[in-house]
Amino acid sequence: MQLYSDKVMDHFSNPRNVGVIEDADGTGEVGNPICGDVMKITIKVDDDKIDDIMFQTLGCGAAIATSSIVTEMARGMSLGDAVSITKKQVAEELGGLPPAKMHCSVLATDGLKAAVDDYLVKRGREPIAGPILSSDPNFDPHEDEESESEACDL
C-alpha cells in the first residue's frame, strides 16, 4: 500500500476551513466522474480577492487533504491566481501524492474554479477559469501518472 505523506495525513485528520459560508458570493460543486467523490467550495470575494473560503468533501483521504490545502492556498489570492492553481501545485504543497491518487487533487482545483466562475457569472462578468476538468467527458485522470495500481487486499 502506498503511503500518504505526513502533511496529507495532517490535512486529512485536521482539515482546515470545513463548512459552508451561508451568504457566499460564489459556490462551486464538482464531482469526480472517476470515483464518484464530490466537493463543494463556497467563497466570499472582496476587491477581486478571495476573502473567505470553506469546503465540504465526500471522498478519500487525498480528496479531503487536497480540498483542505487548496482552501489555505487560495485564501487572500486574486481570483485570477486562484483559478490558475494546478493539481500539481496542490500535490506539491502536500509533499506529494501517491501516483494513483494524483487525480484526487483535480476535485479541489475544479471546485475552486467553479466557485470563482459562479461568482463572476452571477455579477454578469465573463468566466475566467477555463474548462472544468472533471466535468469533461474526455478527462483522463491517469494522464501524467506513472501509476502502478494498488494490489487487492480483500
Partner: peptide
C-alpha cells in the same frame, strides 16, 4: 473497504 478510492483501479 470496497471503496473505489482504495482500490487503485478506482
Amino acid at each position: 473497504t470496497g471503496s473505489a478510492c482504495s482500490s487503485g483501479s478506482l
